[in-house]
Design a protein around this nucleic acid. Sequence first.
DNA 1: TTTAGCATGCGAGAT
DNA 2: GCATGCTAAA
Length: 808
Amino acid sequence: MSSFDDSEAFERASLSARAISARPMPYLDGLNPAQREAVEALEGPVLMLAGAGTGKTRALTARIAHLLATGTAQPNEILAVTFTNKAAREMRGRVGTLLGQAVEGMPWLGTFHAICVKLLRRHAELVGLKTNFTILDTDDQIRLMKQLIQAENIDDKRWPARMLAGIIDNWKNRAWTPDNLPEAEAGAFNRRGPDLYAAYQARLKTLNACDFGDLLLHMVTIFKTHPDVLQQYQRWFRYILVDEYQDTNVAQYLWLRLLAQSHNNICCVGDDDQSIYGWRGAEVGNILRFEKDFPGAKVVRLEQNYRSTGHILAAASGVISANKGRLGKTLWTEGEDGEKLRLIGHWDGEEEARWIGDEIEAMERGTRGMEAISPEGMAILVRASHQMRAFEDRFLTIGLPYRVIGGPRFYERMEIRDAMAYFRVVVSPDDDLAFERIVNTPKRGLGDKAMQKMQTMARTNGVSLIEGARLCLDTKSLTGRGAKELGLLLQGIARWRSMLTEAVPAGGDDLVVEMGTGDTLSHIELAEVILDESGYTAMWQTDKTPEAPGRLENLKELIKALESFDNLQGFLEHVSLIMDNEAEDGEPKVTLMTLHAAKGLEFPAIFLPGWEDGLFPSQRAMDEEGLTGLEEERRLAYVGITRAEEVCTISFAGNRRVYGQWQSQMPSRFIDELPEDHVEVLTPPGLYGHGGGMSASASPAAGMMRGSDLQEKAARADVYNSPGWKRLQANQGRRGMSQPRDGGNMTIDAEAISAFLLGDRVFHQKFGYGSVKSVEGDKVEIDFDKAGVKHVVGRFLVAADSAGDVPF
DNA sequence: TTTAGCATGCGAGAT
DNA sequence: GCATGCTAAA
């Protein structure tokens, strides 16, 4: 295929661009001077240093609009790269809005990976692939690595597949191929690293597949070894824009530099202070080095913040200023100072969750002279996803609607991956990894041993796994139930494949030639047929685990998602686009997510719990990366604070359950770095039982002592001013509390036991009827008839047997 | 071949 | 505290 068969499209696009250029430039309205500068400097390298909330996307899209509207570039001459599909979609939408739909889509606006797939399909043969290569996800990668580990006799205890796959990923992120691995790296696991890497790549090639890292790496290789190809793209992509430049890894950096080096029309947008993806290969160095890489670069700082109040910005600046080697920015706002950051310490994690739950309800009502905030406008940002559980438990208990962002992604769910593996097997006969996944799902009596036979058969005969399986049957090396089932499966696959070639786009109104068998199926019907006939649907229908109905739901969703594609192939290719599968019921919800997931988002009210050394900053980050790790954690803190528009509440707990063990926690060092002028220390008044009608709990000794302790310290300016006072205070608080805690517990127990006895029948507003399983403090463990075992607070329970309607 | 039961180990997660 | 992955028994 000729790579440059788009010259006609080129001409058409050029016409439409000229039409636009005659029009005014409304997209420039309302830009501040810095934004405008960044938008109008079209020629040469530009680094747009865009602090949090400074209108980065606005400037970036205006710049694209400007390139088009002035006729400087045609839509297909602009290469605009993002990291996520979401960002790409948003940018596309906003450019369209700015130009009033006048531009036919920009073909080269997309994620690094999406663009590389497009390019690589044109030049696949240059790296030994066919143009229809498949893209492996992380799961396939690990599966493949496991096979290699077995073949190479590697001790998978010492070198688990996941780890080796991770190492190779890292090498690819750094653009190291097996033959140019630095000596230091080549020494990894007894110098077998390069061999294993080479074997892995060879295996990919025979599978006609590549992994995510390869998409970039192969393109870099092609650009380096085929100057003619590179030059053509350099001519083609006359203007390059990069979003989130601080997140680029070495391979992405090289790719960009190669493409840009002839004309240097590259505009990178990013914020070194928001670089939080070092662990997956991002190099802050890329953005720090920009002016060296692109001499004569214009650096524009976007510093006017349109999101947060003065206090929030000041607090964030205070924290981030402790980092070294920043490019440096000073965020400012024309807005109000607003509320100070709020800081509060709690006894333990559950206490923290309870307080935040109450606080959310209070803010929803709009207490303390503050305007009411909808739950939609509130988010809790945690460092590690396991922290979410405490909040989920609490919110379920009090019936507070919430949503979790960043759970297992739709297409990562087991049932979705299984179903897609079935589709893959049908679409591409050589997809061994997909076949391996489904061959014994549902159970067909084909275990490890049968698998091994098929593998060996395939390998010795140099055929695909599916062919190997057939050979196993033909040669009778497999017998019994397994063989019978396998025969049926292979028959099925062959049949589905023949239907695939007959399948037509859904709703296609062309005249369809009826095939000999009669009806022609759409790809959607075919998908259903595959799942039904393979027994996969039946497997979940007979499954009695509580997840099964949900999984069937998801499969229906999957089938629905097929509607927007013409065929199964196209669907498999674009499967990542169905990620946003949040079933929205319109009810306003509080959002719960990790700090990483929150980058780029904003909320009126933000809660940042768990600011404790070891948890945040994460001990592991500090152990493994030292100061670098700590600085990345600090940037994470900066990202967290700057998500808040109006209120930001930071909290820590003195005790926390870590891996099922109680640990006492030290407040985060980042708390010490919060500038005191912008922080208000909260005390939880009557927290332990007397406020909010919480009559069932009673630990006044602990609660009150802690409260007054904090208050007293906060009132004394000299103590407040002394370095590390907050840590000190928390230490004293903990020492003061550890005594009364036991006593407090006894009180609680006495009271609670008088209320609930083991085996009591109870009723809960949300979970229905159940019986008491155990009592601990004011929390009662209930085995609900419908909802399963839950921990709930006594005051939400009503005895079911005796009085029936008398609450405690 | 499957499964139940115990040991192990743990971060954030786009593409 | 829980999910994952291995070994022992059905």
